[in-house]
């Protein structure tokens, strides 16, 4: 129970940080996505199953609180966790560089899923302008924050593993 509370607390803190503090650092409304970074790190370190589960939780949290299209973040995070969890099964999962390298593709995939959904829902998107102007600032933020987030997730996983024999 304690480890669940600990994880929940970390998730809530990170999400609060993402939606409050980091939102001040934005370019055209696009800012860093800590939930995505956590999901990717979890997926890389603990595989696609736990990754999908984690993505479902944080996505659901985001969908419930953001007021955006419900299920969109959930579906996106789950998909990303599934993909990165499967792709990283043959790699040394505790490499610190892996989440950093994965940060930009993960973000691109997240935006791709979002754009596809928006397109299917009938919302026009200026894709060229988005790629040219809006994508790169948050991508750079993701790269910068990828390693610290990975360290947090890594320490949390180690703590859970050592003390509660979790994972």
């Amino acid at each position: 129970m304690r480890v669940i509370v600990l994880w929940a607390l970390v998730i809530v803190l990170c999400y609060s940080l993402q939606t409050s503090l980091l939102s001040f650092i934005n370019v055209n409304g696009f800012s860093a996505n800590l939930m995505l970074l956590m999901t990717v790190s979890i997926a890389i370190m603990r595989g696609h199953r736990f990754g999908v589960f984690f993505g479902f939780i944080v996505g659901l949290l985001q969908d419930l609180t953001s007021g955006n299209f419900f299920g969109l973040a959930t579906f996106s995070y789950m998909t990303i966790a599934l993909l990165f969890g499967n792709f990283s099964s043959n790699l040394f999962r505790e490499q610190a560089l892996l989440p950093v390298i994965s940060a930009v593709p993960a973000l691109a995939l997240h935006y791709l899923i979002t754009i596809v959904f928006l397109f299917l829902l009938g919302f026009p998107i200026d894709l060229v302008n988005f790629i040219r102007n809006d994508f790169w600032p948050p991508a750079i933020m993701q790269v910068i924050l990828a390693w610290p987030m990975h360290r947090i997730v890594y320490l949390l996983c180690e703590y859970s593993k050592e003390n509660f024999n979790l994972f």
């Binding site: 999908v52 479902f56 996505g59 419900f70 299920g71 969109l72 959930t74 579906f75 789950m78 998909t79």
Partner: peptide
């Protein structure tokens, strides 16, 4: 099932 549910829930 979860994926399909979430997918549908979006719409």
């Amino acid at each position: 099932f979860v994926f399909i549910s979430v997918f549908c829930s979006v719409f």
